[in-house]
Design a binder for these strands. Structure first.
Lengths: 238, 238
DNA sequence: CGCGTGACCAGATTTCTCATCCGGTCACGA
DNA sequence: TCGTGACCGGATGAGAAATCTGGTCACGCG
């Protein structure tokens, strides 16, 4: 590896390389079968070097998972900054659905794919339970903001809406195994999902309130971003 | 067992007892751990007697699964005969959701619960694939009837609708593991599910067409009932 | 004589034992 | 000083041995 005048940046880059390698192997083989040795080899470092950055195999892979969620939150913020209507629930849900098809790690996280995650599914709540809770709090706060401003219907309880949303998204991510082969392509599914969410959760009419809620929604996702970065930093030994 | 003048009815009753016992044990222990000996014991017969009725362990349990689906189809028909509006998609979906909470076997079937079903999940498509296909054909035909009569929107493809429906129902049956504990009770969930389906799939306004579609929908479910009975009869050695 | 039964058997599954693997450590060498 | 891979002890995997279980059918009872 080419050295630069900044050893800190070099270490950062090396950590990213390790995380990239770990992510690729996680997707290919699943947590259980990936060895730290193989990650090291793929990243072009020695095994001991991995432990210079991450205290345990688990810490390494939990960081991989969080990075993935960070990327989604960043995507949301980008979209909203580009187009304020991207703040709408149907837009957020469709974005998440599309992103899941680009990032298999995120998919594994969202559906608790035990084949990919192995014992991480079980340890994550103990080790990072507060950030999992935070995620749901952000969803709740987001729904609240949109309900207040008439962008999400308020004639059903927020509890029922959150549950329904979770169920619908989960179903969209997992139902293939139970249905006949085929069906719409990813884009077709994203469109129908957006339609379902629009029809069932949003209100008809004027979207002027979008501009009012943007700063608040941005703050929520920024907060989530900060929390994820903080959690990632907490496991970084370099 | 008290004998009657009708040996055939006695045998029928004994088969039902065996099926009941098998169903209870399937729910408690899952297919893999239930032995035919235990089923026999619970039904109060000898193990060989079970084989007088069902050729294999698999045939016995496939019959248990089909009986469960039969009961759901019968429930649909009852509801529709009592109230023609029960033919609406949102009503059908809510009924199925509620019934699933009364019949854990049906739940296992609908979500392909491998813990409960074990190798039945794999063998069912080979052995009873035509009836699984039939189920989807009935769903398609049902959607077609309702679309034709303006009771389901026709501005999305039927393919997209069927997929969305499958995804939403699946999510409602499986998402609990991925969400924080709590949320609405069964009835609250059924209501929200009905609302989502109504908003996303149904058309506003006049329901007069309900009376027109009832005979056709009844025929579809009756046909499904007949097929299930036929399939059950095919595996009955008594 | 008809039929319900549970002992029997062979293949399937589980348990146990031993071999190998792998997470984490750290002495070594660049 | 720091990147490394050999090392070690606990975890996991593989294969052998033990046990279980689906299916069969000879037996005995009504």
């Amino acid at each position: 590896m080419r050295k630069t005048a900044d050893p800190r940046a070099d270490r950062r880059r090396r950590a990213e390389r390790i995380l990239d390698a770990a992510g690729e192997l996680l997707v290919s083989w699943g947590y259980r079968r990936v060895t730290v040795d193989e990650v090291a080899r793929r990243a072009g470092v020695g095994k001991g070097t991995v432990y210079l950055h991450f205290e345990t195999k688990e810490a390494l892979f939990l960081t991989v998972l969080m990075r993935s969620q960070l990327a989604l939150a960043e995507r949301f913020l980008d979209d909203i900054r580009r187009d304020p209507e991207a703040v709408l629930l149907s837009r957020i849900v469709a974005t998440a659905f599309r992103w899941v098809h680009e990032d298999p790690i995120l998919r594994a996280v969202l559906i608790g794919d035990t084949e990919t995650l192995g014992t991480l599914s079980r340890s994550a709540p103990d080790v990072a339970g507060d950030i999992l809770d935070e995620r749901w709090r952000v969803v709740d706060a987001y729904l609240d903001v949109l309900r207040e401003h008439g962008l999400v219907r308020a004639d059903e309880s927020r509890e029922a809406q959150r549950h329904a949303l979770g169920a619908i998204i989960t179903g969209y991510l997992t139902a293939d195994a139970l249905m006949p082969p085929g069906g719409p392509d990813v884009e077709g599914r994203a469109a129908m999902l957006a339609h379902v969410v629009r029809a069932a959760f949003e209100t008809p009419g004027d979207r002027a309130a979008v501009h009012t809620v943007v700063p608040r929604v941005v703050a929520l996702y920024q907060h989530m971003l900060d929390r994820l970065r903080q959690e990632i930093g907490r496991r970084d030994l370099s």
